[in-house]
Amino acid sequence: MIALKRKTILHFTLIAAIIGFMLAVQFQTTKRPIVRDTRDIWELRQDLKQEQELEQQLLLEIRRNDEKIQNYEQNHLADQQTALQETVDELKKEAGLTEIRGAGLILTIAPFYPENYVGPIAYTVSPELLKRFINELNMYDAKEIAIANERITNTTAIRDVNGVTQVGNAKISSLPIQVKVISDDVTTLYNRLKVSTIYDDFVIENLQLTVSEPMSAIVIPKYYREWQIRYMEAVKAEKEES
């Protein structure tokens, strides 16, 4: 009986050991290995630079807002109104509700066909290409953009409506169209556009992009529609306690 018992215990021990082993392996499997940081020194530097730039930008913004607050607090009632008005104007400008003049470029998108071309003819520019194009322009520090005299704002949608591309509310159903771009540094924008690969993307869609020489005065129209504001409402003016 005792011998059997010992054997039994031995078996139990063996099985328990196997279970323990399996548990440990399973535990190690489910425990994810720590993700190693494999960035090299240049990538680290780049990341650091990016973060520093962001910090700089945020600091700048904070300073500007601080100044504004000071303005509000320091000045008297009348001045407060002007300060508010200034802010409103500034915001309007930022939202694209004002006409903007400045140095910039005019780009023309026109159909482009090789000689004795046979095939479908493009009447519109695909939304994907236009979005790519706008991204490209923004990458080159374009400040304001208007496509076919439609101001591009933060909420302008570029989409396909029944086969015709629509930018905001303007249909692009006939070519050529003009794209106006204003930038603080037109020469750089111009030079960068010159070497851009976006031309090839246009050519694939049988379109040609031509860039004008930098011009000193370009007018970009304002966003002429009403803004739909759904999630904001005006605060009712509280009575000032004198």
Binding site: A17, G20, L23, A24, V25, F27
Partner: peptide, 9 residues
Amino acid sequence: GFIIGVILG
């Protein structure tokens, strides 16, 4: 035995 198994694993 169980503990030995865990340690081994």
